[in-house]
Computed example of a mutant assay.
Amino acid sequence: MEISIRATGHRGAGANAVSCGPTGAPVIRFAGERVDDPQDGRRKLVRVTPIGADVLVRSAEGFDRLRAERVRALGADRLRALESDLRVMAPADAFRLDAAA
């Protein structure tokens, strides 16, 4: 699956938030760059730029902070049980991330 990065119009981590979509969508230069695939001239590859990597790291840190807050509020055992219950209710393969909107 090929992906690109496009602006969502939301603000986050000090820059436009990004989301994945088909490679036909405009690529935001600060987060990703399109390059030719050396193995297939019909394809483009999307590489994350240093700024895009920084956005991803900041997002991961934010999710880590949220999870830590939930551990403090519920306790580690209860949070693990809740996450397990949610996986039963919404299995990982229930929603395809590459499906058209």
Rank of each mutant, 00 (worst) to 15 (best):
G62Q: 10
G12D: 09
A100H: 08
A60W: 08
A68P: 02
A17S: 13
D64P: 00
A99N: 03
A68S: 14
V27R: 13
A73L: 12
V46M: 15
G32C: 05
A17T: 09
S59I: 04
V35K: 12
H10F: 14
L74F: 13
V55R: 12
R70G: 00
R96E: 11
I5T: 11
R34I: 00
P50L: 07
V35R: 15
F30G: 03
R78H: 06
R11I: 05
E83L: 14
R43F: 02
L97S: 09
G12I: 01
S84C: 05
V35W: 05
N16H: 09
E61P: 00
I28Y: 04
D77M: 02
M1C: 10
A76H: 03
A76Q: 08
E33Y: 00
E61F: 05
A76M: 00
G9L: 04
R11Q: 14
R72T: 10
G75R: 02
A92I: 08
V88A: 11
A81H: 10
A15F: 05
I3W: 15
S19W: 06
G52M: 06
V55H: 15
R78W: 00
L66C: 10
H10R: 15
L82A: 13
I3D: 01
P50W: 07
E69L: 09
A90M: 12
V48F: 15
F95E: 09
V27A: 15
G21Y: 11
T23F: 12
Q39R: 12
L82I: 10
R70L: 15
E83G: 03
G14V: 07
V55T: 01
P50N: 08
V18A: 09
S84V: 01
V88Y: 02
S19G: 05
A7F: 12
